[in-house]
Simulated scan of single mutants.
Amino acid sequence: MRVVAKFGGTSLGSGDRINRAADSVAAAVEDGHQIAVVASAMGSTTDDLLDEITFDTDERDQAQIVSMGERTSVRMLKAALSARGVDARFLEPGGEDWPVITDEYGEVDVEETRRRALEVADTLDDAVPVITGFLAEGPDGSITTLGRGGSDTTAVMLGKYMDADEVVIVTDVEGVMTGDPNVVEGARNVGEISVDELRNLSFRGAEVVAPSALSYKEGDLTVRVVHYQHGDLLSGGTSIEGEFQNLVDLREQPLACITVAGRAIRNQPGVFQSLSAALGESEINIDAVASGLDTVTFYVDVDEAERAENILHREVVARDELSSVTVDEPLAVVRVTGGELPNQPGIISDIVNPIADARINLHDIITSATSVALFVDWDDGEDTLEITQDLF
């Protein structure tokens, strides 16, 4: 089996942990597997170096300085592997066999990186490559970086381009947990999680695998997260399933927009819960929810509109803080799903402006970590879909 193993800063944070990492790699090699290693800077080295740059410097000099953390790690890990009788070599930007190349805009040069990654893969029977994570080489030979979480990105990207069977992210957590074990009781490891689920969690604070890395995951590439104390690269942890796809789609059935108004609903504990619970108890599916200070809007199947209106009306009558319920139908929803959409400055205006230029009224727009939902009149749904597809 061909495996790319990425060791995070914590898993290389001391000599003992480097020894543990080397033991796990050596065991996998002894079992006959092809192993490539991606190494982060030891511990908090990168942050420490950045903190010490208290003088004016350009991006090129800064990249050179922060690269020293990864450069040190690969030398340490290569030496530890050699001490165990494992043939190993370290790879860093500037070397003739370095794989990760960026273009003049700082984006990964896919064609060149894939070609070089396959060349590295061809040598896996001869030696274990220990590759600096986070770093890349520009077209002029300069050192560039892949941004926050760049070592994860290096690992999954190389796993994809090297035709690996699996990428193993070795870190300081037991895989993906049901909750933060430092905050909630009884948190346990999740054996499997989808790419979509993890990307949404990652954009909202879960520091397990960098979202940028998961964009490189394809369906036939296994990605697994294990704790550095586990000691076995080939089992345990959390398996990340599926692949993330850029998608623009129009919901096939129309929606009804049901809005409940009241006085400062947002500041009234229990109001939203009672409204949504009433719909749920009647087995009415809620497609989406939007809220303001004085309103809560539920989007449900248009066939359920009348029943949902009556259910919510009963809640309005029962609660003094609520005043009225109204229905608007039929509406179409076009959803754009594409990784870091809401995290790209200006992306919402890039989507909305062409729709406005076409004189299409947007009833609502709802964003999540990885998607944008556009609500328009049902008759405008196909035109909105076509405009949005042209953008992506």
Rank of each mutant, 00 (worst) to 15 (best):
D58Q: 06
E52A: 15
P345W: 12
R199K: 13
E309N: 10
L77C: 09
D379W: 04
H33G: 00
I348M: 09
V100K: 03
L247R: 11
G346Q: 09
D383T: 14
D232R: 12
G149A: 07
L331I: 01
V208A: 08
L81F: 06
D51Q: 14
D109S: 14
G191E: 15
F375I: 05
R20H: 11
V130D: 09
D364A: 11
D320K: 07
T144Q: 12
V38R: 04
D301A: 15
V226G: 01
E283S: 13
T297R: 07
F134G: 02
A21P: 06
F7D: 05
L331P: 00
G346I: 00
A288I: 00
A155S: 11
R2W: 03
C257W: 08
H33N: 13
E174D: 15
P354Q: 10
V302P: 02
D220V: 08
H363G: 00
V74W: 01
S24E: 08
N267G: 02
C257E: 15
H363C: 00
I348E: 03
V4I: 15
T297P: 06
A187Y: 07
A288M: 12
V167C: 08
I286K: 04
I18D: 08
V208L: 10
I351Q: 01
N200W: 00
D377H: 12
Y161D: 05
I18K: 05
Q344E: 15
D16P: 00
T259F: 10
G191C: 02
L77E: 12
G141L: 04
E243Q: 14
G339N: 05
F134R: 00
G262P: 13
S323E: 14
